[in-house]
Design a protein around this nucleic acid. Structure first.
Lengths: 249, 249
DNA sequence: CGAACGTTTGAGATGACTCAAGCGTTGTGG
DNA sequence: CCACAACGCTTGAGTCATCTCAAACGTTCG
């Protein structure tokens, strides 16, 4: 089933079975895409959106020197460019980070579903708002955290999101990306990301080797990255057993 | 009329007159709020949203030292926390930057409008997606620009947004905020923002004094901040140069 | 007039960057 | 099956942007 991961564990907005089935039926095709391939260009008119089934996809903006800033990373179950349904043209590019399997949903099908199931539309809207909430967490990360904190925050986020779709056991998961990807996510250079990873290793917080992330001290890593998963709106997340660090303001 | 500025000039999603009138009718009250006041706290259950009529409002996240990262700035005409309609609880705080006049719209009214005018709901969705697009531009700003670029980018954005609601003549506008606000927006210290403002002044790009921004060289400022207004989805903005066609990243 | 607040400037510290080189792994073609 | 190229990781040394701390200055307002 294509949609088993979509909206899994979303607080207050789970999909009904009939919604899930209708969405399944709306899938026009399933594609395999090579790794590191851009498949949606900024500014192009779109009539379909992409549900990610397997692999990792990112959204990014190019600067004038050709460097990239990633603005989102997507994990299986994410409706990657659902916002293209109302927007029609995106302000950024979308590409795979790894080989990926995706399900294509034509916007015309979403139109039909909007008539049939207005409540479902609300849930799709909700889904795009979670992406926006993640953007805000990323803004906090870039604006207020130092290099180690940024990487720690990112790893905590991905761990939480992968756990929600059973792709992390809560402390260990596959993440087939390279250090320069993390640099493009965290607004750092790849050289510095390398030093950050060493720091995380030396502080026994986290190890990232051969595409596997192993979190050795989840609470410590979360504290280092000031990570609070509330913005992910995942059900049953034990609320931030807050890092016990009272700090004088 | 409360809604004259809302969705003004939005590309491909202008409001019909009857939609505008219905929204007017949905306003339950109009409030005046003091400057620098938080009026929506992160995590609190909400049953209404806020349309900004006059003044400036921001959304922000606190870090553990009590420092703030602004994640959005709103200008008159913005439906500030419309995303609270589907989300119900926000992941951030909302507060005024200046004294502000706001119109309150109960979510129950939006429910009614959803039944009466499904197309209007689509436009509200669209509106929240523009906020997300702005988040992405801010991510680019923080991740890829240096201090001068960040401030330049921000000033270009505010200029463009204020111009769309007739609060900038395209080069000069009131912005009653202080340098530390810009610091909290751009992920810098207020001391450094001060030096950046001097640089912009010395390079004859822009002057910011007594709450007035005067852009002396719009093109130069945009170039310094790598600003491309496409993400604002404003009608009749001269479209940017389009992307290249290579596919492999 | 004085207090509060915001701006400006200086000097020194530091975190992240740049450039450069070496190392390890993987995949491939001779 | 080895050699080598390509790629990613690691480390070092020097530079630079931004931060921190500190002080002075300007403006507003009670």
């Amino acid at each position: 089933m294509f949609t088993t991961k979509f909206f899994r564990d979303k607080e207050g907005a789970k999909l009904e079975l009939h919604e899930r089935l209708r969405l399944e039926a709306a899938v026009s095709q399933v594609n395999q895409i090579d790794g590191r391939t851009c498949f949606v260009r900024s500014g192009v008119y779109l009539e379909q959106s992409t549900l990610l089934l397997e692999g990792f996809i990112c959204r990014y903006v190019d600067d004038k020197k050709g460097l990239r800033q990633l603005v989102a990373v997507h994990v299986p179950g994410d409706f990657v460019d659902l916002h293209a349904y109302p927007l029609k043209r995106l302000d950024h590019n979308v590409g795979t980070m790894t080989p990926a399997r995706v399900a294509i949903v034509p916007h015309s099908e979403l139109d039909d579903m909007a008539h049939e199931m207005p409540k479902f539309m609300r849930k799709l809207w909700f889904s795009t708002l979670i992406d926006a909430a993640i953007h805000r967490a990323w803004l906090f990360r870039l604006g207020r955290l130092d290099a180690v904190g940024r990487v720690a925050h990112f790893l905590c986020e991905i761990n939480a999101r992968l756990k929600a779709v059973d792709l992390s056991d809560g402390a260990r998961f596959e993440l087939p990306i390279i250090q320069s990807d993390i640099a493009e996510i965290c607004g750092l250079t790849n050289v510095h990301v390398n030093r950050v990873m060493r720091t995380l290793r030396e502080e026994n917080l986290c190890v990232f080797r051969s595409s596997v992330v192993e979190i050795l001290n989840l609470q410590g890593l979360a504290s280092r990255g000031q990570f609070d998963p509330a913005y992910l709106y995942i059900s049953h997340v034990p609320q931030p057993s807050q890092p016990t660090m009272s700090v004088k303001i």
